[in-house]
Amino acid sequence: MLSQTSFFIKEEIHLSASQPRLLLFVGSYAEADDPGVYTYEMDSASGEIRLLDQATGMKNPTFLGVNAERCKVYAISETTEGGERIGEIIAFDLDSAGKLRELNRELTIRPSSSHIQLDRSGRFAVVSGYHGGNVGLVELRADGAVGKLVNEQQHEGQGADPVRQDRPHPHSVAFSPDNRYALVADLGLDRIVVYSFESETGRLVYQSEASTPPGAGPRHLAFHPNGQWLYSINEVNSSLSLFSYVEATGELVLQDTVSTLPLDYAGENTTAEVAISTDGRYLYGSNRGHDSLVQFAIDPESGRLTLVEHVSSQGGHPRHFALTPDGLHLIAANRDDNLLAVFAVAPGSGRLTFTGRTVTVSKPVCVKPVWF
């Protein structure tokens, strides 16, 4: 049984008593002595970005989870226990000036974690273990601090690619719109594994699974706003898969798969992030190698994708990107050029135009824009 502290106390917390501010939280590859998590404020009209704070003391805090209502930021990190690698989560309080203060940290799964996702209630976090083939459910306490690992699931098997898919590689988790299911993208198995999320008992219970095409390598997932379609961006073969989603059972059925690359591109490439516009009309993905952002139009009847265009990500290895909550901008995190690049999103067409605004950040690999 979970402790009573797993239930958040309902209260209103705001960063500012005036109008909301658009903040960006950035995670990066970093050594513990160097800055690894950054807070920026972004002007939602101009796209201008200014640094508010940066935090040290974490090794490779590559992915972040943000709870805006509770003014909490969660970062994964790598550490050791008894000479063995183990993942951890660090919780931060965020004050009215955008400053980060470490609240606590707790160990999670071995040997490390690659991704963190908060459930829609903010009471739990799920961490994905790319290197260990495992997924861990972590309790978050009433004050927002990180609690203990309460459940762990181990994947088994292999995929079609003997190099990239010799064993399980859970890369990320997405919660269903109703928070009843946790869907795990396992790159190594070519599977989306669906777990029933039992929040009262703190358990992930196997429900079902669906397969991408062999050798695809699902990496990250995005639900369409209508809740009926799920999109998987597939790292190994640079593709996007559309699944129909059955809300009652969590069942997924593969409908279509398309390439993220131009027909005439023959170089090496892996994909990274996927996101959908708030109006549900467009899907965006990132290509590492081709170093581009790809835009698709979403058919409103079937969910199938039609290519709109590719645009340069303005840097090497766009490992992550995000649309701002107002839908006016896209920020691309180009790891190899230490660069955040800001794009304007055209109303109606959804097309991307580079604004000329950039921010230098050491090896950025996650960007989370949130209203506070």
Rank of each mutant, 00 (worst) to 15 (best):
H115I: 00
E209I: 01
R164L: 14
G303R: 03
G303F: 03
T108F: 09
L283T: 08
A125D: 05
V135F: 09
T355E: 00
N234A: 04
L137M: 09
F243N: 02
R101W: 06
S96F: 03
Y130R: 12
T324E: 09
T358A: 03
G316W: 11
H14T: 14
S46L: 06
S211R: 15
A185D: 11
S286C: 07
W371R: 11
A97P: 01
D119L: 13
G159V: 00
A160C: 06
Q19I: 10
L94M: 13
E209G: 02
S121Y: 03
H317P: 02
S232N: 05
S362W: 01
R219L: 01
L140N: 03
E48L: 13
L305G: 02
R281W: 05
Q314M: 15
G350E: 01
A45R: 12
L64P: 00
G57Y: 06
P61W: 04
F92G: 15
L183D: 14
L339M: 13
I116R: 12
A248P: 00
I116G: 08
L283H: 10
D161H: 15
V37C: 06
G144R: 06
L23Q: 12
I86A: 02
R288C: 07
D143I: 04
Q19A: 15
L23I: 12
S241L: 03
S259I: 08
I9L: 13
L252D: 04
A75R: 01
A91F: 08
T270A: 07
D143R: 05
E198I: 01
E11P: 04
A160H: 09
A222Q: 09
L204K: 09
S18L: 08
S128A: 15
D256N: 11
S6C: 05
E102Q: 15
P168C: 02
I76E: 04
D291S: 11
Y231K: 00
V66D: 07
S292C: 09
T353M: 02
H320M: 09
G159D: 00
E251I: 05
I116F: 11
V274W: 02
